[in-house]
Simulated assay, not measured.
Amino acid sequence: MPDDLDEVTIRTAQVDDAPAIARVHVRSWQEAYESIVPAAHLASLDPETRADEWARNLANGPHDHVRTWIAALEGALLGFVTVGPSRDEDARPREREIYSMYLDPGTWGHGVARHLVRTVVHELGESAPLSLWVLAENERARHFFRRTGFQPDGTERFEDVGGAELLQVRYRRG
């Protein structure tokens, strides 16, 4: 990992990035959710299937104002973030939502996620309303988002993930 984030490149994802995004996506899930999501579900995650899904999504380009940025270092993908219009019924005007943000586990704690969030905030505007959903048991992510200006707003929901009903908490900023 670089000591200086200036060495990390943040750019809009391209279709050719799909396999690398999928590998990071699966590895991150398997590590971050190891004690949260059922093991059988995590074991069933397939980077090739995920790569096909990512390629289809990225081939459509930024549609419906959905955009994915990647963080890379010397050609290696370190992580990604996808942002689009909020899907919540009670969304504020012009509210955007971070749909997903995952990093290669080897990059955790090195500032790459902070760099991605800064890019999103810069692109949307510092005062733009932004939300995301975090698994309640994912303390690492919850702590990170609080440190980057997000706060839980008291809204929760359950989502079926691999046959388990898991509690999610909504965070907002702006």
Rank of each mutant, 00 (worst) to 15 (best):
E31Q: 15
L42Q: 12
V26Y: 08
V83W: 03
D52W: 04
R50H: 09
W54D: 02
S44D: 15
L130A: 06
N57L: 13
R11N: 05
D46P: 01
R50D: 07
Y99W: 12
D17A: 04
V134M: 05
A13N: 05
A55V: 02
T68Q: 09
P38E: 09
E34T: 11
T68I: 06
I36L: 10
L77Y: 01
R147Y: 04
L130C: 11
P62T: 10
E74M: 05
G79N: 10
Y99R: 07
P105D: 07
A72Q: 10
T68G: 06
T82N: 08
D16Q: 13
A22Y: 01
P105Q: 12
E123P: 00
H65W: 08
T82R: 05
S100I: 12
P129T: 08
A43T: 13
E165G: 10
E159C: 10
I21W: 01
V81G: 00
R170C: 02
P2T: 13
R96I: 07
R96K: 15
W69N: 02
E7H: 13
V112R: 01
S44W: 13
P38Y: 09
R146P: 00
L166Y: 05
P38V: 11
E137I: 04
N57R: 14
D88W: 02
T119N: 06
A51D: 03
E48F: 06
G174F: 06
L135E: 03
D17E: 09
H122E: 12
W108P: 01
A141W: 06
V161P: 02
M101E: 00
D88M: 10
R173G: 01
W29M: 14
R170T: 03
E123W: 00
E34M: 04
L58P: 00
H143S: 14
R157I: 02
V24F: 05
D153Q: 07
A43D: 15
V117T: 12
V112G: 01
G163V: 14
R50W: 07
A91Q: 09
A43K: 15
H41K: 10
E97Q: 14
D153C: 09
F145S: 00
D104N: 14
E139T: 13
D104V: 08
D52A: 15
R140Q: 13
A91V: 05
A18K: 00
T119S: 03
D104A: 14
R114L: 03
A22H: 01
L132Y: 03
G106Y: 11
V121D: 07
R173P: 00
F150I: 03
T155N: 08
A113I: 06
L42K: 12
R146K: 12
G163T: 14
G61I: 00
G75Q: 03
R94W: 10
P38H: 09
L78F: 03
V134Y: 01
T9G: 08
R11I: 02
R147S: 15
I10P: 00
G154V: 05
D104M: 10
A141V: 09
E31G: 03
Q151I: 11
L135Y: 04
V81C: 07
D52Y: 02
A32M: 07
E165F: 08
L167V: 11
